[in-house]
């Protein structure tokens, strides 16, 4: 019987949670389900060459077989995915965002991702504001230099009065250590990897859903490579992708997130806090122009942004309730 080895390429180091707690267990599961006939070799840290923005095309063109990447790496190309990255749209939990994104993707991403086999589309849990001074209200953000994780999160930060600073991830810890920036906006999962808990002291989130921001991810496969798989291996892959994978991913972000949050709280040096519900209402209102502008921008791309936004919100509340 034919056995197949697929190359999976991504940009994070092998000690990362995504590599060790999501992709590796997933590859093992696929191997087990296929009786070791479908092997997935994972190449971390862009070892097979290129830069993160090229990952999607590497899958599309068959340079590698599968990639883990962010639609945000190639901005403009997947406008429909951006709805989850708008401020105060996503849920606080990844276990809600991830399946919501997957279902949304099944309905809306066929055209934008037509040139790959999209194995899964999901989003992480709430992003927090990590700073060197406490944040209780919007005015506390005024003039704070915060590294933004995405363009839309950056627009949200600006709308809230902060100074949105853009810089690549590798520069961020260095800039924090040297106090060139006052903080960074990321989910808990990323915090230990770039030592944001040691470089900042205050970790502020907004209460409940919808939350400040999230970012979305793709697991994408080369189309021909997928089509060429024997039917039984195709079935194994199908069984392990889509909603199955999204739920796995969502669980990883939530589990690691609460683990990290507990550890940071217990350290004694750091303060973890939430702003009040009333304050959150002000933030939601202040960032309304960001959502309005996005809906407006989508018109230029022939997309009904308002409808996409409603759909995303409905799915997020559906999976938040579940």
């Amino acid at each position: 019987q034919e056995s197949v080895t697929l190359k999976l390429h991504h940009f994070l180091p092998p000690v990362s949670n995504v590599h060790s707690k999501l992709l590796e267990p997933w590859a093992k599961q696929v191997a087990a389900d296929s009786g070791d006939r479908l092997k997935i070799e994972i190449y971390p840290a862009m070892q097979l060459g290129g830069k993160p923005p090229q990952l999607y095309d590497q899958a599309r063109n068959g340079v590698v077989d599968i990639v883990w990447t962010l639609p945000g790496n190639t901005p403009g190309r997947f406008p429909s995915t951006e709805v989850f990255e708008l401020p105060f749209v996503p849920a606080a939990k990844a276990t809600a965002n991830a399946p919501a994104a997957q279902e949304y993707g099944e309905a809306n991403l066929a055209k934008e991702t037509a040139d790959v086999k999209l194995l899964s589309f999901w989003a992480h849990d709430q992003g927090l504001i990590h700073t060197n001074k406490p944040i209780a209200k919007m005015e506390d953000l005024a003039g704070l230099k915060l590294r933004n994780p995405t363009r839309l999160a950056g627009e949200a930060l600006s709308a809230l009065g902060a100074v949105s600073v853009s810089m690549p991830v590798p520069q961020t810890p260095e800039a924090l250590a040297q106090k060139v920036i006052d903080g960074a906006v990321i989910p808990w999962e990323v915090v230990p990897s770039i030592k944001v808990d040691e470089l900042t002291r205050y970790h502020t989130s907004v209460p409940g859903t919808p939350t400040l921001y999230t970012a979305t991810f793709f697991l994408a496969m080369n189309k021909d490579r997928y089509a060429g798989l024997p039917d039984d291996l195709k079935a194994v892959l199908d069984k392990n992708s889509g909603m199955t994978f999204a739920k796995l991913a969502g669980k990883m972000w939530d589990d690691v997130g609460s683990e990290v949050a507990a550890k940071v709280k217990a350290s004694g040096k750091n303060t973890v806090s939430e702003i009040s519900e009333e304050e959150k209402a002000r933030w939601v209102e202040a960032t309304q122009p960001v959502r309005d502008k996005w809906v407006e921008d989508m018109k230029g791309k022939g997309l009904d942004g308002a409808a996409l936004l409603e759909q995303a919100k409905a799915l997020i509340s559906k999976y938040s309730a579940a």
Binding site: P13, V15, S16, A45, V169, P170, Q171, P173, E174, A177, P192, S193, I194, K195, E198, L199
Partner: peptide, 20 residues
């Protein structure tokens, strides 16, 4: 500062300030 240490810090998930 050192580019190599920055790369090491990312790969090993270590604190760049301490490495410097």
């Amino acid at each position: 500062p050192s580019v190599i240490l920055v790369i090491y810090a990312i790969t090993a998930e270590q604190n760049i300030a301490k490495l410097f």
